[in-house]
Amino acid sequence: MFCSIYKWYISRALDSGKSLPGSVRRHIRRCASCREFAQFTESLENRFVEDMPGFLDDYNKALNEKIISALDKHPGPKSAPKRRPALVPVLAAASALLVISICIVWLVLPSSNKITPLNQLSQLGISKISFENMLVKIDSPYEEELTELKQTLKSTADFLLSRVDIKIGEREEKSPKVPHT
C-alpha cells in the first residue's frame, strides 16, 4: 500500500548518497516489489557505465572534423580571461570596521567635548548681543577668496572666447576656395 512512498525513499537515498532509514530497510525485507526495485536501482549505475561505450559508438565521427574546421574559421575567445576581483567582501569588511570604530570613538569621547560654541561663550561671560556686534565688525574670511574666484572665472571665460575665435579663423584658412579654370 505504501510501496510508492518506500520506492521514493529508495530513489532519494540513491541521489543523496545517504543510507536508507531503518523503517524502509525493514519494509524491503518483507516486500518483494520494493526489494526488486531497490536491487534494480542499485545496479543501474554499473549498468549505465558498462553499456555506455557501445551506445556512444552509434555516432558519426566525421562530425568532429567538421566542428574543428569550423573552429579554425571562427575567432577564438573574445578577450583575455577576466576574473572578478574579490573587492566586494573586502569593501564590506572595511566599511563595517569604519562604522564600528566611529561608534566606539563616539561612545568613548568625554561629555565635555559635546559642549556647543554658544555654551562656551556663555561660560566666558559674553552675552549674545555683544557677540553679534562683534561678528558685524569682523570681515567675512571668505571675502578675499570670493573676489579671487570671480577674477579667475572672468579671465578663464576671456581666454576661452579668444580660443574659439582662433579656431574659426583656422578652419577658414584650411579650406580655401579653388577658382575654376
Partner: peptide, 13 residues
C-alpha cells in the same frame, strides 16, 4: 552540436 561548440569556444573566457 556544432553551434554549441562554437559558442563555447567564443565564450570560453
Amino acid at each position: 552540436i556544432q553551434e554549441t561548440f562554437l559558442k563555447a569556444f567564443r565564450n570560453i573566457d
